[in-house]
């Protein structure tokens, strides 16, 4: 079961503009929360704060496992991940990109081989495992980003516009992968999208970001 996240009156200001204004919400464990809203309303900032990439100016994020709070240390950071909108593909092969999260956790090479092989099959990149990852198309790169996240089996999966700027076919593949994660892994998923139909299809909880605060959709 995934972790639950409590946002407690989070505020964040950029260049004098308060993007998040005392934003509070509880993301329930094991459910998929889809956040929608216009550009510049703080959706990505919220995800980055949830991923512990950024610190809010005020307020805090609490991670809870079975109702007990967790310290925001490396161990917690390794239980969650964020798929960035630009992915951040490493200049190495597709295989080594996906294996990265396992290598830094000290997983053995045989297990890495098995787990990465299985994930690459799932995201449809098995045939490209030895190819340079920077040569992938945008859609394939997005799938690579999901594969990198999936392989570490996160309890909280944060997705920042996973289907933005890609074609219908790749978008459907990615949605299929997200559905598979929902069905098999029971992770807490928080996803940002601009596609209302996709949001309807994937969301257990639909949220709207408005004026720096989250509202039920």
């Amino acid at each position: 079961m995934g972790l639950s996240l409590e946002l407690a009156q989070i505020s964040k200001t950029y260049n004098g503009h308060e993007v998040l204004q005392e934003c509070s919400w509880t993301f329930e464990p094991g459910l998929t929360h889809v956040i929608m809203g216009p550009n510049g309303t703080g959706k990505s900032t919220l995800l980055r704060i949830c991923a512990l990439l950024e610190v809010p100016d005020r307020g805090r994020v609490n991670f809870l496992a079975g109702g007990l709070p967790l310290a925001p240390d490396l161990a917690l950071k390794r239980r969650l991940t964020l798929v960035l909108p630009g992915v951040g593909v490493f200049n190495t092969s597709v295989f080594h990109n996906v294996a990265y999260g396992l290598k830094i956790r000290g997983i053995g090479s045989r297990e890495i081989e098995e787990r990465v092989g299985a994930i690459l099959e799932t995201v449809g990149l098995a045939a490209k495992r030895r190819q340079r990852a920077l040569d992938l198309s945008t859609g394939q790169s997005k799938r690579l980003g999901l594969a990198r996240a999936m392989v570490i089996d996160p309890e909280v999966l944060l997705l920042d516009e996973p289907t933005a700027s890609i074609d219908q076919e790749n978008s459907e593949i990615i949605e299929g992968i997200i559905n598979k994660i929902k069905a098999e892994r029971k992770a807490t998923i928080i996803m940002v999208t601009h596609d209302p139909i996709q949001a309807e299809r994937l969301a257990d909880r639909l949220l709207i970001m408005k004026e720096g605060s989250l509202l039920p959709g």
Binding site: L53, T81, L82, L84, F90, G101, I104, R105
Partner: peptide, 24 residues
């Protein structure tokens, strides 16, 4: 800079993060 962020969100500690950037 996205490389550093990618390393961090995948669970890299500060040393691993630095080595990833150097490797790039």
């Amino acid at each position: 800079p996205i490389i550093r962020q990618a390393a961090r969100v995948l669970g890299a500690n500060p040393w691993q993060e630095a080595l990833t950037v150097i490797r790039e």
